[in-house]
Design a protein around this nucleic acid. Structure first.
Length: 448
RNA sequence: UCCUCAGUAGCUCAAUGGCAGAGCAUCCGGCUGUUAACCGGAGGGUUGUAGGUUCGAGUCCUACCUGAGGAGCCA
């Protein structure tokens, strides 16, 4: 016997290998160590069924009184929800257990026993929104939140992988900025060494600079909106992925957005089936998400809204109800393009065929989830931008560097921003975006 | 900022203007295959706050506080 094998055998006797619960099937019949927390305990006289949680999954343990020492049985009987544990036992396949496997516990070490006088507040029963939100730091331990945030991870990773494969370079944009990026929304103001600074509402203007340096770029980070908005699709702090490409047009960006959303959905379906099942998501609605997505003009969107009985008039921006109505018209995400220039930001390129329109695009998610992407082609002409900045009464000096981009090698370029939380809410089919981010920041909610 | 709704036990919720209730959680007891385990028992309340109407207010009125949903705005 080699030294390595002998060391391994010695380890098996004293300390079986530490195994994550989602890998438990590979250890059938073998002794393992589980490190985690008590999820729930059912007791039936001389047999106990503790359920262990380690962050990767749940595993039911079985403790028969006459099969373990009196000390172990007594310790297990006293366990409280979320007490931290190190458990040793043997894995056994059993159809009576969720997941198909259970652990015959031989030893159980309690790291910290949650006191019965101050028990873990979030029980397996129902709780209200306020109660759970006040305890978000503990709520994250639940199976549902675990599934949502694993899917969020998959979506973030898919965004990165997709853009990397497409030749885009991650070039981060600053979070502290000297002025409004677009001049349209309300910003969070902060003190920057006796100067006013603002939390970014978009990395786009900076990506326009970096795309002239690298060709194809994206930024991926938190963005901030200080509107006193209070709906199920709004957060004051949310994450946005924003690709921007030199020489790209509106059509290029519609193609890219369509392929990116398709890739994201495919990756979640391929790698997060278990999590979608935990959320009881109807995956058939996601399986049909492939190119081409329907593309309609703003004009056509207005016609659809009128046909559906909306009092909507040409010239305005869509409200939440309008977005829901449009999204419900299609089973795939829909791209709405060529909006009235008057309702869009100053940097939008005008449609050469109809200058009153801007070459912008929004992608509306199906199932009533509204806008998940906004973007378009950027104005390349210096004089046009100067005129827009003046018309919209924006502080010109704040845009001096931005205007330089039109002086030194201006090219057509385009990009878009995708709000991660709304994509997570759609793919998980959640009632509210507050569950899509670990610690949501909303109007009237800054803690925990 | 505006509109609507809500606030009762640790949690989720009941209670015609007339004795403050249930399930779960907790504690005690029972149970060797439980699946949000089950069965029996016990403790647990300034009904968001401050006024008002009334013989009597959890219930009706006023103001405020907190939260939720929505509008506007936004990804």
């Amino acid at each position: 016997m080699s030294e390595a094998a002998s060391a391994s055998a010695a380890q098996t006797e004293s300390q079986p290998p530490i195994v994550p619960i989602d890998q438990i099937a590979r250890w059938e019949g073998k002794p393992v160590t589980i490190r985690g927390w008590l999820y729930n305990l059912r007791a039936s006289g001389k047999i106990l069924f503790p359920i262990f949680r380690d962050g990767t999954g749940l595993l039911q343990g079985v403790i028969v009184q006459k099969a373990v020492s009196p000390e172990v049985f007594a310790r297990a009987k006293e366990l409280t929800q979320e007490s931290s544990l190190i458990v040793r036992g043997t894995v056994r396949a059993d159809t009576r257990a969720h997941g198909g496997y259970e652990l015959d516990v031989s030893d159980l070490q309690v790291l910290q026993l949650v006191p019965v006088t101050d028990p873990f507040p979030i029980t397996p029963k129902e709780h209200g929104v306020e109660f759970l939100m006040d305890r978000r730091h503990l709520w994250l331990r639940s199976q549902r939140q675990n599934a949502i945030l694993r899917i969020r991870h998959e979506i973030s990773k898919a965004c990165r992988d997709f853009l990397d494969q497409e030749g885009y370079l991650l070039v981060d944009a600053p979070i502290l900025t000297p002025a409004a990026c677009e001049g349209t929304t309300t910003l969070f103001e902060t003190d920057y060494f006796e100067e006013k600074a603002y939390l970014t509402q978009s990395g786009q203007l900076y990506s326009e600079a970096t795309c002239a340096a690298f060709g194809k770029v994206y930024c991926f980070g938190p963005t901030f909106r200080a509107e006193k908005s209070k709906t199920r699709r709004h957060l004051t702090e949310f994450w946005m992925v924003e690709p921007e490409a030199a020489f790209a047009t509106l059509d290029d960006m519609m193609d890219l957005a369509e392929r990116m959303v398709t890739y994201i959905v495919k990756q979640v379906l391929a790698n997060r089936r278990r999590e979608l099942a935990t959320l009881e998501r109807d995956v058939s609605k996601l399986e049909g998400i492939e190119p081409p997505f329907p593309r309609i003009t703003y004009d056509e969107a207005v016609e659809i809204l009128k046909r559906k009985g909306s009092a909507y008039e040409w010239g305005g921006d869509f409200g939440g109800t309008d977005e829901t109505l449009l999204g419900e018209e299609f089973t795939k995400p829909v791209l709405v393009h060529r909006f009235p220039a008057a309702i869009k930001a100053f940097y939008m390129e005008p449609d050469p065929e109809r200058p009153e329109l801007a070459l912008g695009v929004d992608m509306l998610a199906p199932e009533g989830y509204g806008e998940i992407i906004g973007g378009g082609q950027r104005a390349a002409d210096l004089n046009l931008l100067l005129r827009r900045i003046e018309e919209q009464k924006l502080p010109k000096e704040a845009f001096d560097w931005y205007l330089d981009l039109r002086k030194y090698g201006a090219v057509p370029h385009a990009g878009f921003g995708m709000g991660i939380e709304r994509v997570v809410a759609w793919i998980c089919k959640l009632e509210h975006v507050r569950e899509t981010i670990p610690f949501p920041r909303m109007l009237y909610r800054l803690r925990p």
